Amino acid sequence: MAAQNIEIVVHRGANALAPENTIASTDSALKYGATWIELDIRKSKDGVLFNLHDETLDRTTNGKGRLADMLAKDVGKLDASSWFSLLYQGEPVPTIAYMLDYLKGKAKVFFDVKRGTPIPALIHLVREKGFADNSFFWFADEGMLREFITLAPEMKIKVNAGDIDRLKYWQAICKPSFVEIAPEKITDKFRKYCHKHGIKVMAACQEDDTSQFQLVIDKQADMVNLDRPEVFQPLLTKKQNAGY
């Protein structure tokens, strides 16, 4: 029996190949089989949503301070790539609107919704750009999750859970479509429970460690959330070509 297909979800784009959260890292991820691109949602002082992981601009741009304290027009002037390599000099901090326009027809979107994000504005943008059916959302803040499912009950939610009991906690609050879990915690019982309830199992393999990639395949995850698609894709292809 042929190996299953595992959907590749990229965390900040293929960020070992290009500067994170930019069009360049997105293109690199798509090149290596990604079907989902993670976008980190943060708001400027005047309410424009940007794709930036950190609360501050210091680490990944030539700017300083909190994004929330800057106007969008000033954020748009920043270089979000020279810190990574001069080969990418001039890559901007992209707005979420621009990212969605760019990804239309190329990939689906995983929204990591940071604290302070205006939920109604995000929902409006996602619907306007045609991604309501081609996305899912994760909230570190449970209060924001509750607000979101009230305003957009039709949109898909991802939760984090290490076992069935924790997943049941989230099921009492919302209807998860995806659950993220460490690959070593995926059991047959957990996977069967998820599939019975229409939930896809996404293995968490973020950061630069690729040592668990084979485990993700062996555990038969539906999806994997990672930073290194250029390492994972050849492993998956090798398994599929082997026909088992």
Rank of each mutant, 00 (worst) to 15 (best):
residue 163 D to I: 10
residue 144 M to C: 11
residue 157 I to S: 06
residue 117 T to K: 00
residue 148 F to A: 06
residue 146 R to C: 03
residue 178 F to P: 00
residue 159 V to N: 01
residue 169 Y to D: 12
residue 147 E to R: 05
residue 152 A to P: 02
residue 134 N to C: 05
residue 121 A to Y: 10
residue 138 W to N: 12
residue 151 L to S: 15
residue 175 K to H: 14
residue 136 F to H: 08
residue 129 K to N: 10
residue 151 L to D: 14
residue 135 S to I: 02
residue 126 V to H: 03
residue 136 F to R: 08
residue 163 D to A: 14
residue 149 I to K: 07
residue 136 F to A: 04
residue 141 D to M: 04
residue 141 D to I: 02
residue 127 R to P: 04
residue 128 E to C: 13
residue 128 E to V: 11
residue 131 F to N: 04
residue 139 F to C: 07
residue 171 Q to L: 04
residue 145 L to Q: 02
residue 175 K to S: 10
residue 156 K to Y: 08
residue 167 L to R: 03
residue 173 I to H: 05
residue 123 I to L: 07
residue 153 P to N: 10
residue 130 G to W: 13
residue 124 H to Q: 15
residue 149 I to P: 04
residue 143 G to D: 11
residue 165 D to E: 14
residue 156 K to L: 14
residue 119 I to Q: 01
residue 178 F to L: 02
residue 152 A to D: 02
residue 148 F to V: 06
residue 177 S to G: 13
residue 160 N to A: 15
residue 134 N to G: 11
residue 166 R to V: 14
residue 156 K to A: 11
residue 169 Y to M: 12
residue 160 N to L: 15
residue 173 I to T: 01
residue 116 G to T: 03
residue 151 L to F: 11
residue 157 I to T: 09
residue 124 H to I: 14
residue 122 L to M: 03
residue 141 D to T: 04
residue 159 V to P: 01
residue 132 A to P: 08
residue 172 A to W: 08
residue 151 L to W: 08
residue 150 T to L: 08
residue 170 W to G: 07
residue 149 I to L: 09
residue 174 C to L: 01
residue 159 V to F: 04
residue 171 Q to E: 06
residue 127 R to V: 06
residue 167 L to C: 05
residue 127 R to G: 04
residue 117 T to V: 00
residue 137 F to V: 05
residue 154 E to I: 07
residue 129 K to F: 12
residue 121 A to C: 10
residue 126 V to G: 03
residue 164 I to E: 07
residue 128 E to A: 11
residue 155 M to C: 08
residue 152 A to W: 01
residue 118 P to G: 02
residue 176 P to T: 05
residue 130 G to L: 12
residue 158 K to T: 15
residue 127 R to C: 09
residue 172 A to L: 13
residue 172 A to Y: 12
residue 136 F to I: 09
residue 169 Y to Q: 10
residue 157 I to Q: 08
residue 119 I to M: 06
residue 154 E to H: 12
residue 122 L to P: 00
residue 174 C to N: 10
residue 160 N to P: 15
residue 118 P to K: 03
residue 150 T to M: 13
